[in-house]
Amino acid sequence: MPDVDPPGWELPLLLFAGFRTLIDQLHESLAAHGHPDVRPVHGFAMQAIGVHGASISEVGRRLGVSKQAAGKTVDRLAALGYVERVDDPRDARSKLVRLTPRGLDSLRLAAEIFEALRADWVVQLGAERVRSLESSLRTVIPAAGYPVDVPGWFG
């Protein structure tokens, strides 16, 4: 019997399931290491805020959501101690959202966890298959970089 390619609709579901598996494992580990309240949308928001901070409008644009939706996410992150609002040194009328040490710690820890998760995939699939998968995905995704607008895109 000749090999038959799977149906096209299966590819995005497999990619999403792989993504979801990694994100679920990340959040399980984050919770075990002192960050039980961080949700996937929070990680995207903290990436959108970045190490230099951002205005609520910038966060909304980067996430692909309204300023109001970005404000709600920032409010939640502030209540959890991951971000703070400070005066914007570029514009005295504006506030800048900045990561707190707790927010920076969660991003640092997430990076370490992703390294461990990738290492698990290497054990399961082999280093060459993982490198080939990563290389293949880099070939087909736009060169613009990694989008953090997933919350808005799904909305």
Results as ranks from 00 to 15, higher is better:
residue 2 P to V: 08
residue 2 P to Y: 08
residue 4 V to S: 10
residue 4 V to I: 13
residue 6 P to K: 08
residue 7 P to Y: 04
residue 9 W to E: 15
residue 11 L to T: 09
residue 12 P to D: 06
residue 14 L to F: 02
residue 14 L to R: 08
residue 17 A to N: 04
residue 32 A to Q: 14
residue 34 G to Y: 05
residue 36 P to Y: 00
residue 40 P to T: 03
residue 47 Q to T: 03
residue 50 G to H: 01
residue 50 G to L: 01
residue 52 H to W: 01
residue 52 H to M: 04
residue 53 G to R: 05
residue 57 S to D: 07
residue 60 G to H: 07
residue 61 R to G: 00
residue 61 R to F: 06
residue 64 G to M: 02
residue 68 Q to W: 09
residue 70 A to L: 05
residue 71 G to K: 02
residue 73 T to K: 09
residue 75 D to H: 11
residue 76 R to M: 09
residue 76 R to L: 12
residue 80 L to S: 05
residue 83 V to C: 06
residue 84 E to A: 15
residue 85 R to E: 07
residue 90 R to P: 02
residue 91 D to M: 05
residue 92 A to Q: 10
residue 92 A to P: 10
residue 94 S to E: 10
residue 96 L to W: 01
residue 96 L to H: 02
residue 97 V to W: 03
residue 100 T to F: 12
residue 101 P to D: 13
residue 105 D to M: 06
residue 107 L to H: 02
residue 111 A to N: 11
residue 112 E to S: 14
residue 112 E to G: 12
residue 113 I to C: 00
residue 119 A to Y: 15
residue 120 D to F: 11
residue 121 W to S: 12
residue 126 G to F: 13
residue 128 E to Q: 15
residue 132 S to I: 13
residue 135 S to H: 13
residue 137 L to H: 02
residue 142 P to V: 07
residue 146 Y to I: 13
residue 152 G to T: 11
residue 153 W to S: 13
residue 154 F to H: 13
residue 155 G to M: 15
residue 155 G to E: 15
